[in-house]
Simulated scan of single mutants.
Amino acid sequence: MAGKGFIVDLNKPLVFQVGHLGEAYQEWVHTPILTEESPQFFESGFAEFLSRTTWWVVPVVWMPVAFYFIGMSYTMGLTLPLVAMLSVSGAFVWTFLEYCIHRFLFHIVTKSYWGNTFHYLIHGFHHKHPMDGLRLVIPPLEAAIVLGMFWYLCRLLFTLSMGSALLGGGLSGYVMYDTTHYYLHHGHPTSKILKSLKKYHMNHHFRIQNKGFGVTTTLWDRVFETLPKTKSAEESK
């Protein structure tokens, strides 16, 4: 039981502490700690192991699965141009899902014990410890559950051959998202495009956290007017 003024002990497992912050959780979780150390989440060593994932696991595990689904569409009789078109469409749909999930799920406002705990587990930890490289990409078990949900949805809405190509393309888009996200935090881009994406994403973490919800593209932030203004635009007001 915790009352007003609860203080999180950073030297103890964090997940089941943060719920006690109540209404103070939002301010606490959006005040980042800039260290690359990976804090302890759970008492259980097994749960702790499952919560950590190195970035290269994502392409190693999921790109073969994406190619399998795309290849399955081709072997079921779809033409190569149609398979390519559906795969690209799936990747494009992913960019929209990426934006929606980040904006409407990852940035929900919570204040109850279990609400805060849930938010911290799905995204809050990333804003509190944005440089934790072992908790930057989605663990395979969690991704597999979400993939199963999308596969079921594809089977409801499309034929097996079309749904396979769309899912494979969407999964490829997810891999690009997670690896790009890791690179924006830990890489040192030299190209203009990646430099711009890194600045855009760092703005989301350290300057305007209720704007800039895209990671691989700014497209949907432009469409839905959640693109953060530049400092020069703010200063000119």
Rank of each mutant, 00 (worst) to 15 (best):
G90S: 10
I70L: 11
T218M: 12
W94F: 05
T53C: 03
T216L: 03
W94M: 04
L105A: 06
G170T: 03
V8N: 06
A144Y: 05
G169E: 03
N210R: 13
S73E: 04
W55S: 13
L160W: 12
G214S: 02
L167G: 00
F125R: 12
Y99S: 01
H20I: 10
V57P: 07
T180P: 00
G170F: 00
R155I: 07
Y113M: 07
H127F: 03
Y74M: 11
T179K: 00
G115K: 01
E23L: 15
G163K: 01
F16T: 14
F104N: 03
E234P: 10
F6V: 14
K4C: 11
H129I: 14
T35W: 13
P59D: 09
N116Q: 03
T216C: 03
Q17M: 02
V29F: 05
E43T: 11
H186I: 02
G90R: 04
S89P: 13
L171R: 02
I122D: 10
T218N: 08
S161F: 09
L157G: 06
R52F: 09
Q209I: 13
T95I: 04
V60W: 06
G5S: 06
F41K: 13
K237T: 14
F125V: 13
K237M: 15
G5V: 03
N203E: 12
V88D: 11
F125L: 12
A66T: 15
L34H: 15
L153N: 11
L82P: 09
M85D: 12
L219M: 04
P32V: 01
V58H: 10
F92T: 14
Y200H: 06
G187Q: 05
M76R: 12
K211M: 14
E48Y: 03
G124M: 10
I7S: 15
M202H: 12
L166G: 01
K111M: 12
G173Q: 05
H185W: 05
G124P: 09
A144H: 11
N11P: 14
G168Q: 01
S51T: 08
T110G: 05
K128F: 07
I145D: 06
I193E: 12
S38Q: 08
I138R: 10
T190H: 08
K199I: 08
F41D: 04
K229V: 09
T75P: 09
